[in-house]
């Protein structure tokens, strides 16, 4: 992205919005992660205006390859603003630029938060038990605060309401996605039937992050500092977020810590119930864990397709496709265990 090699136009945009008399760029680096978005850290010093002094911002813009299901920068910015206003620890959303003449595409500016997000690094850190418990409890609280946002309470009309229920809409969507992939996947077909036959009674729809997992939140000195990557946010069953966070596929090898390889469900559920006042139903979470693993398998198949079609030749995408049997194995084991337990 050539436009991003020179941050002066972004700096000018920031200065205009902050009504600064002067702005000086002191650092500009590309941040890792984000196959769908480009993230850059921009450090500036401003004179006058609404926020004088030194600041580091994150500038988020579209990467060359986008996924149809993801939100535009404008939509994502609206979602983050809504979550931030509801008390969710998202990076503070500051300014949105939809004028493509500035850097060639829309971008948004957020305050940079400290910490690391890399899932493998976080899981390897092995926090002391008390810190891990507190961190996982805070993840529960964050999700519960987010899930308080409901379709009637927020102006996010660009987000579609799943019909007739979140679970059935997901199942229908995943069957459609499998139809677009030439290689057959009997295990995923079986799992979709399993999910269809066991759909729990639907809950009121909530704003869901839909990619809330280890790797997408920042932790600094054992504490949660920011929830990132909101481009898949949607109205859904609130348990979808709990299931995605707990799915075995997202534990980065630390399988005994069911909450993203970081800690235990009892702490997550405690934190969640602490905000909502309602106990979490563990079996519902497990149902949505199965849904999560099916979804991840389908995303992995789609990533492999991007490689196979020549759209983006990549060893990483190719190998992601070969991870699908891992998710299929986990799905089968979890479904069969749940059948044995529940009869």
């Amino acid at each position: 992205m050539d436009e991003m090699s020179d941050p002066s136009r972004i700096a000018d945009f920031i200065a205009a919005n902050a009504r600064a008399e002067n702005i000086q760029v002191t650092g500009f680096t590309k941040l890792s992660g984000g196959a769908i978005q480009n993230n850059h850290a921009l450090s500036v010093v401003m004179d006058g205006g609404s926020c004088p002094g030194a600041h580091t911002f994150v500038v988020r813009s579209d990467a060359p390859s986008t996924i149809a299901a993801s939100l535009t920068r404008e939509q994502e910015f609206a979602v983050i603003k809504c979550a931030y206003a509801a008390g969710v620890t998202a990076p503070e959303p500051l300014w949105l630029c939809t004028d493509k003449s500035v850097i060639g595409q829309s971008f948004c500016v957020m305050r940079k938060v400290d910490g690391i997000a890399n899932g493998r690094q976080l899981v390897r850190q092995e926090l002391p038990d008390s810190e891990a418990s507190a961190l996982v409890r805070s993840l529960g609280q964050e999700l519960a605060r987010l899930h308080r946002i409901q379709p009637g309470s927020a102006d996010l009309s660009f987000l579609k309401l799943p019909q007739p229920t979140a679970a059935s809409a997901r199942i229908r969507h995943y069957r459609g996605a499998l139809d677009d992939i030439s290689e057959p996947h009997p295990v995923l077909e079986w799992a979709l039937n399993w999910l269809e036959d066991r759909m729990p009674s639907p809950l009121p729809l909530s704003l869901c992050h839909c990619d809330f997992r280890t790797g997408n939140y920042m932790v600094d000195k054992g504490r949660l500092t920011g929830i990132l990557d909101w481009e898949f946010a949607a109205w859904s069953d609130p348990y979808e977020d709990l299931g995605w966070l707990c799915a075995r596929s997202w534990r980065f090898g630390n399988v005994n810590k069911e909450v993203g390889g970081m800690g235990h469900k009892r702490d997550l559920f405690d934190g969640y119930a602490n905000v909502t006042g309602v106990d979490v139903e563990p079996e519902r979470v497990k149902y949505w864990e199965v849904m999560a693993m099916v979804r991840w398998a389908i995303i992995a198949l789609q990533q492999a397709q991007r490689h196979l079609s020549g759209e983006e030749t990549s060893l990483e995408l190719a190998l992601t496709g070969r991870m699908v049997p891992e998710m299929e194995f986990d799905v089968l084991n979890q479904c069969l265990t749940m059948e044995k337990t529940n009869g």
Binding site: P186, V187, W190, G253, V255, R322, M323, P325, E326, E328, F329, L332, N333, L336
Partner: peptide, 24 residues
């Protein structure tokens, strides 16, 4: 039998793509 067959099929695929996963 269908569930068992699908498990066996998946195990065979894992033997190729990531045999270590079978013992995790």
């Amino acid at each position: 039998p269908l569930a068992e067959m699908l498990l066996a099929l998946t195990r065979r695929k894992l033997q190729i793509s990531n045999p270590k996963y079978l013992s995790m």
